[in-house]
Design a protein around this nucleic acid. Structure first.
Length: 706
DNA sequence: GGAGTGCCTG
DNA sequence: CAGGCACTCC
């Protein structure tokens, strides 16, 4: 749903006031004056905003002038409620003459202006209000009649309201078609209806329960009658059991003597006072007792445990008793089942579809419950839904498809695994443990083979390092340890980037997250284009080319920043020759340097302002030395371990930058939103050559161990 | 339309 | 640091 509210868009726009400050690296390219550019930019913003607003409306076109909810409702009714003719009409209306349906007040006497406004705000005329009130009363009356009827007749029979208003049925039918408006009215009605229905339901259940209690009592009486006549001790036993159900176990000894005789005589009145829980307990225990007794009968039948009853007058009673016990058991069973069913129905009271709003009952569809449960988000009010309504939505979160973030494809290879092989897992090779999905995907409980990174990541020359910079192995075991969570933080984000990047170019040039559609869609996306690009690694099999950027690449990039602030993509390709480049990798590297610059310039501005605040009057007073605070901040960012000697040239550039900022701020240029652009243009020309050693995949080791 | 850039945000 | 976005340039 593109309810990307244009408000937030506007907010962003006004908040940003951004002027694009792209720095051209091609020398001599003089852009138009800043002011002109700003003006053009602003008018463009307006134009685009208008355009965008229109496009948002366009996407709503199937149901213009309706709220989202009413759309859903309408959708539902069209497909379920109104029969084929109506459904057809609605769907036609949706595609052909949407306005007519949204305000089908006989379609003629109401202009589109009287319908809901494009943003779903109802604008009703007096006529509308009167009409709705009238409608409301009618509906209410019909509903009450319905309920009364249901009470006096069969509860399941619901006579359609329209059929009882013979003369006005055609009008009723017509009105029903005005759903978007009616729905808003009937929303409150729905709540009332629900309440009434629930009350009715409860009453009936209560009656049912009482009925069943009576039956149970009768059964008990019969039961006692039989056993009273056969065995007094067992009678006591049984009574005890009934009185102390919760503590009983079926294996209890039949000594017939126990010390709980105090409350063994419960009256029938007590039984009827039981709450459903107790009632259930009792019923269950009764069954248990029955089973127990039946079991005890068994040895007797087998002649193993003959007792005093055998052969006496009870012998004739015995067979009869058994039969009765069996019958009773069955009866109790069915009674229990009924009771349990009804009680569960009441107490596990998920909102169920009401007759007034038929849902798309599709018992065969496994998604039905999911879709239905989602409605509970709207409270206790039943919102008519259909699968179709949800099918039109991008996805159903909370299901197995609930994958909002792309899963990682890049998995680090442990050092011990480097020399194993460069088998391509997804291409028929064995599934090496290291190729399995990362813990991230494992946590999400979703790790289809397609998400296994099919490539080895030979990191030779790039030993992973601890945050302190010390080289360390990176074992799978470590990865799951809490410490390694920090360790792999960067990589995790890298993986995210990598994965999301596979979708790049399909919807947006940037690395966007997985398509909000189905997982299958996501998979197909991943398999296309960029994935193919990535998958085509055969030339690199067994080589040191790796498919993703490692933390060491990041470190290397940071060190390179000391030489170049604006590296071209070609330069990056040259200096990261151990990485197989694709658009995503390139973008990621460029983004890294963009982030580096951002931090760099922020620091510059910060320290320039600080200097001004400190009373510095001339830029020449400013200098950047290795022990100044600014440098320390920068060094901390790009050379955290401080194991790289920052070139002097960087200090010079930093100093120039700082002075540029200082001068600009002093001159008051910072009132111009694009005041930094001039500085950027200066700084981008100060890039120096990156030493050749950075072209080596092992440069980090070489550089840091010097 | 892609690439590159900066700004904002998380 | 990454995602998203707007913007410019080619």
């Amino acid at each position: 749903m593109p309810d990307h509210d244009s408000d937030s868009l506007l907010n962003r726009q006004t908040k940003r006031r951004r002027v694009d400050i792209g720095v051209k690296r091609t020398v001599g390219s003089t852009t138009s004056s800043t002011a002109a550019a700003t003006a053009v930019s602003k008018s463009n913003v307006l134009r685009k905003l208008l355009k965008r607003a229109n496009s948002y409306e366009d996407t709503m076109m199937p149901f213009p002038g309706t709220t989202i909810i009413s759309q859903l409702l309408k959708n539902n009714i069209a497909k379920n409620g109104g029969g084929p003719e109506r459904g057809e009409r609605l769907s036609n209306a949706s595609s052909d003459a949407p306005q007519e349906d949204a305000c089908s007040n006989s379609s003629q006497d109401s202009t589109p202006q009287e319908c809901l406004s494009p943003f779903g705000r109802p604008s009703l005329t007096t006529f509308d209000i009167e009409r709705l009130n009238d409608e409301h009363l009618r509906a209410k009356r019909a509903r009450v009649e319905n309920i009364i009827r249901g009470m006096s007749h069969s509860p399941s029979v619901v006579v359609p309201a329209a059929s009882r208003h013979g003369s006005s049925s055609s009008r009723e039918n017509k009105r029903k078609q005005r759903l978007p408006q009616q729905q808003q009215q009937s929303f409150t009605q729905l709540v009332c209806q629900r309440k009434e229905q629930k009350q009715e339901e409860r009453r009936q259940l209560k009656l049912q329960l009482e009925d069943m209690q009576k039956q149970l009592r009768q059964l008990q009486e019969k039961f006692f009658q039989i056993y009273d006549s056969t065995d007094d001790s067992e009678h006591n036993d049984l009574h005890n059991d009934i009185g102390n159900m919760s503590e009983d176990s079926p294996t209890r000894s039949d000594t017939g003597v126990d010390d709980r005789g105090g409350d063994d005589l419960r009256s029938d009145n007590e039984m009827s006072d039981l709450d459903p829980g107790h009632f259930l307990d009792r019923a269950r225990a009764l069954l248990q007792e029955q089973t127990l007794l039946a079991d005890r009968d068994k040895p007797r039948r087998d002649g193993l445990g003959r007792n005093k009853r055998q052969g006496g007058p009870g012998a004739s009673m015995h067979a009869e008793g058994k039969q009765l016990a069996e019958t009773l058991k069955q009866e109790l069973n069915s009674a229990m089942t009924q009771v349990v069913d009804t009680v569960v129905k009441v107490f596990a009271k998920p909102p169920r579809p009401t007759p007034q709003f038929p849902t798309a009952v599709n018992g065969d569809n496994p998604n039905f419950h999911t879709a239905n449960q989602r409605l509970q988000c709207f409270g206790d009010v039943i919102i008519p839904n259909s699968l179709e309504s949800f099918a039109s939505m991008p996805s159903i979160p909370g299901t197995a498809n609930d994958q909002t973030e792309a899963l990682p494809l890049v998995v680090r290879k442990t050092p011990s695994e480097h020399h194993q092989s460069s088998a391509v897992g997804a291409h028929g090779g064995h599934h090496h443990p290291a190729l399995h999905p990362s813990s991230l995907s494992a946590t999400m409980g979703f790790s289809p083979p397609s998400f296994r990174h099919p490539f080895p990541l030979p990191l030779m020359g790039y030993p992973f390092q601890t945050p302190l910079g010390g080289p360390t192995g990176y074992t799978g075991k470590d990865r799951s340890s809490p410490d390694s969570m920090d360790l792999s933080r960067e990589t995790t984000s890298l993986r995210t980037k990598m994965t999301s990047g596979h979708h790049m170019g399909h919807h947006h040039r940037s690395c966007s997250p997985a398509h909000p559609g189905s997982t299958a869609e996501g998979l197909s996306l991943i398999k296309s284009e960029d994935f193919q690009d990535m998958a085509d690694i055969s030339p690199y099999s067994g080589s040191n080319i790796q498919e993703g950027l490692s933390p060491n690449h990041l470190k290397k990039a940071k060190l390179m920043f000391f030489y170049t602030r604006y590296p071209s993509s070609n330069m990056l390709k040259m200096f990261f020759s151990d990485v197989k480049f694709n658009r995503c990798i390139t973008s990621q590297l460029i983004k890294w340097f963009s982030n580096f610059r951002e931090f760099y310039y922020i620091q510059m501005e910060k320290f320039a302002r600080q200097a001004i605040n400190d009373g510095v009057t001339g830029a020449e007073e400013l200098s950047v030395s290795r022990d100044c605070e600014l440098f320390r901040a920068l060094n901390m960012h790009y050379n955290k371990a401080n194991d790289f000697e920052v070139p002097d040239r960087f200090l010079e550039v930093a100093e120039i930058t700082l002075r540029e900022f200082f001068n600009a701020i002093v001159a008051g240029k910072d009132v111009d939103p694009s005041w930094k652009k001039a500085i950027y243009k200066v700084i981008c020309k100060l890039d120096s050559e990156v030493p050749e050693i950075f072209k080596s995949p092992n440069c980090l080791q070489e550089l840091l161990h010097e």
